[in-house]
Amino acid sequence: MPTFFEDKQLVMPGDLLAEGGYAAGENAYKEDEKVFSAQLGLVDFEEKTIHVVALRSFYIPYVGDIVIGKVVDVGFNGWTLDINAPYAAMLKASDVFDRPFKPQRDDLSSIFNIGDLIVAKVVSYSRTRDPLLTISEPSLGKISKGQIVEVTPSKIPRLIGRQGSMISMLKRETGCHITLGQNGLVLVSGKTLEDEQLAIRAIRKVDAEAHTSGLTDRITKMIQKEKGGNESAQKDN
């Protein structure tokens, strides 16, 4: 039962990863006892399952995901949101009102209008039906402040880090509040514009260098160096 690549090595679609006894995980497929890569990415051997962590990807909704969406249409009984996926997502008006909702009485555009950004959760999605969203949880709802950064959706796990090491470091070092959308959109809101911009630069760096080793340390250093630089610049003024 040989494997043909080392852990974390770069593979292309069609590369033979292993033979016999292995299961194909994410972004891999199996044909006649052989496991092949289906993506440009890094191999990840997990016991007998082989995954490929994609370097470039698009977002496919998954039930339970937290996503950040933009209202693109206000309908009679709900809103249509762009969640950075090939499918348009629906948010129903009955989900927002805690009382029975009447289209004649309630003006939906006064709640969410076109262009509004919303943090929501995917409640249902299947191959045949477009994703349905909900905001009936405390942390969900309309975004009133902060900035949005776009990253490759497959790199969100890297941005979280092992047991949340990367994200907690980013929050601690920059003092910003960070909300990760599984669809590759990240909301950053901090006390000052400088804090937010620093966090955004750090997130962009993680996105660009997700496949390199020793990344958390490098990002910490970068933030501390830039923070130090800003403070001394302020003193000069």
Binding site: M12, P13, G14, N27, Y29, F36, A38, Q39, L40, A54, L55, R56, S57, F58, T152, S154
Partner: peptide, 11 residues
């Protein structure tokens, strides 16, 4: 297509 991150059997 590979650059776009599309799942493919092979190049």
């Amino acid at each position: 297509l590979a650059d776009a991150g599309i799942p493919m059997r092979d190049l």
